[in-house]
Design a protein around this nucleic acid. Structure first.
Lengths: 210, 210
DNA sequence: TGATTAATTTTTGTATACATTTTTATCTAT
DNA sequence: ATAGATAAAAATGTATACAAAAATTAATCA
């Protein structure tokens, strides 16, 4: 497995301390490679929002917070609906077949959090593919991949997995029945609901801390 | 100047060939550094959308195209208005002062394209600062920085500089008069108009090529 | 001649060593 | 004590050397 993916897993499972600088030599020992691939991974992860600067040169794992979660889901709702609207009339049976395949895989046990996040994105991606808007798609992909950082809460204390899968199923049915308006509204709600649940939970946590 | 900024300048001024792989050794000779900082720069630029993969390992400068420009401005319009709406009531006189300073600098001659792009972003950023939404701001920043890749057209054949500055001035007046609704509409038009002009021009270019 | 495979060359990826910067610890003066 | 300056350390940044992978060229066979 690639270094940056390993680091992501370790961040999600709280195996790396948040808020303190990540040291390149420590990581190079941990993952048994030299500092060069570590540097590459840290640079990528910083670009993807998984790490933030610490001091003048270092990086650290940022604390999760409700405001970021809210922003991510606000942006997802807006941009994914835009993209889905562009795709809708062009969605093929092949696209739906792909989406269903990812949907099925999401029910499997024994997936790491990063893998669950990937599959969730693959599902949505299958529905957006037909839009043929690479740039918009890439930004939406970035947002989805950042949202993965919060998946620990959604698959853990919030128990959102079942609800999410039910909504995915319903969405597929709406697409197959060619009801664009309803499908768009449903997608927006699917995203907004997930965002609200997460944001609210994070807010309650931050209050508890004091 | 930083390597990645130099590369950006050279991309904007068409001093590096598009579509063919960028070779690390060539770049390391060109900028007179070793391959390590070149690799770092390429990785960052790829993350920022300035470069795209070429083959299995290389990167190249992608061709500019109307679809990407349209996407970038669609996203900017949506997200910046969202952000501006969150900021509006909290904008301070200090914020406006900052925005005016960047506005003034934009009138200077002898700015490189990258610098013009930076100043344009600083102007907008000054207005969004008050929203206090770091994540949303960071995504919007990314979109603005990608849009810089198209600045050569806007400041060149499209002669958009004057129009843009007039609109910036008008926007500042609307903010000072606390007319939120009108200011929001105006910002949206400011972005959408620039996008439409650019997109239309790029479309006409692509037709001519055949 | 055209397509496949093999050999060669080129290019990227990684490790190690060194330079520079940043951080931490120590010392001094008020 | 505390703030500031200075010295030590630890960390990141960069260069060079080598390994692995990719792309190109050459060779082989249908």
């Amino acid at each position: 497995m690639e270094i940056s993916k390993k680091i992501k897993e370790d961040i999600l499972n709280n195996r790396l301390a948040r808020g303190v600088p990540l040291r390149q030599v420590k990581l190079s020992n941990r993952y048994d490679v030299s500092r060069i691939p570590i540097r590459d991974a840290l640079l990528s992860l910083k670009g993807e929002g998984w790490l933030v600067p610490h001091g003048k040169a270092g990086v650290m794992i940022p604390a999760l917070n409700w405001k970021e979660a809210e922003d991510l889901y606000l942006m997802r709702a807006g941009l994914e609906c835009l993209l889905f609207g562009m795709a809708f009339d062009k969605i093929t049976n092949e696209d739906i077949r792909h989406a269903k395949a990812f949907f099925a895989e999401l029910n499997k046990e024994s997936l790491t959090l990063v893998e669950k996040g990937e599959l969730n994105w693959f599902f949505h991606n299958a529905l957006y593919q037909a839009a043929d808007r690479p740039t918009l798609l890439r930004v939406v992909e970035g947002l989805n991949k950042q949202a993965v950082r919060y998946l620990g809460f959604q698959y853990g204390p919030l128990g959102y997995r079942e609800t999410s899968q039910k909504q995915h199923e319903a969405l597929l049915l709406l697409i197959e029945s060619k009801d664009k308006k309803l499908a768009l509204t449903y997608l927006r709600e699917h995203i907004e609901k997930a965002g609200k649940l997460l944001t609210q939970y994070l807010k309650s946590l931050e209050i508890k801390e004091f």
